[in-house]
């Protein structure tokens, strides 16, 4: 069973990140790993920084109504876009505006994050608009590192997190960091596109 790219319509949401090669790599990674996800029989799944919402909607198409789907974004337009994308694809995602997972009290069984990974100046991480969809600050790592620090407390016992990374994010250093957090990691897919070498990793206990 393949995972079709979910339909989306961003014409009412000009300040939301349009799905691109990174998004498609992420969908391909979920498809490649679907048996492993299904085997964990997740009940609560959340995408962070969901933007258009095609990743969490793609997951919802994979797992159907055996799981509840959530999304967060710091851009309220993106929260609305995600809810709309889910509906267009006959899925349902509970969208909440927040930073990372900071306002949830309980862990998730699946966490998806296509983070702002582009290497930028730190002061480009400002506001809540479209720039925030890609601006990753120093090494492209500022948001990624902030997220990873919270991951052990937000990942359920049998949970799995999928994270997209850029080569310049220093994948080896992130591997060390993951070990330090007491988690295991594995690369699911990698792809070279013009100007970017991208990876999707998964982390679990």
């Amino acid at each position: 069973m393949g995972l079709p790219t979910p339909l989306y319509d961003l014409k009412d949401f000009p300040d939301v990140y349009e799905p691109s090669e990174d998004s498609h790599l992420f969908l391909d990674a979920l498809e490649a790993d679907q048996e492993s996800i299904l085997a964990r029989s997740p009940k609560l799944a959340c995408e962070i920084g969901s933007g258009s919402g095609i990743l969490i909607t793609g997951l919802a198409q994979l797992l159907k109504n055996s799981c509840a789907y959530f999304s967060t974004d710091i851009n309220f337009s993106a929260c609305r876009a995600t809810a709309k994308t889910a509906l267009i694809n006959n899925s349902y995602v509970e969208s909440v505006a927040m930073d990372l997972l900071g306002m949830f009290r309980s862990p998730f069984d699946v966490i998806l994050f296509n983070p702002p990974y582009v290497v930028t100046e730190s002061d480009e991480i400002m506001g809540r608009g479209l720039d925030r969809a890609y601006a990753g600050g120093c090494g492209g790592r500022e948001i990624i590192d902030k997220f990873l620090a919270t991951l052990p407390s937000m990942l359920s016992e049998n949970g799995v997190c999928y994270l997209l990374l850029l080569k310049e994010n220093n994948v080896e250093d992130i591997k060390e960091k993951i070990r330090g957090l007491g988690l295991k990691g594995r690369m699911v897919l990698e792809r070279k596109i013009p100007g970017e070498h991208l990876f999707v990793f998964k982390y679990f206990r």
Binding site: F76, R80, A83, S95, V96, A97, M98, D99, M103, R128
Partner: peptide
């Protein structure tokens, strides 16, 4: 609003 809680701080 629109069924979406705004929990931004």
């Amino acid at each position: 609003s629109n069924g979406i809680p705004n929990m931004l701080l």
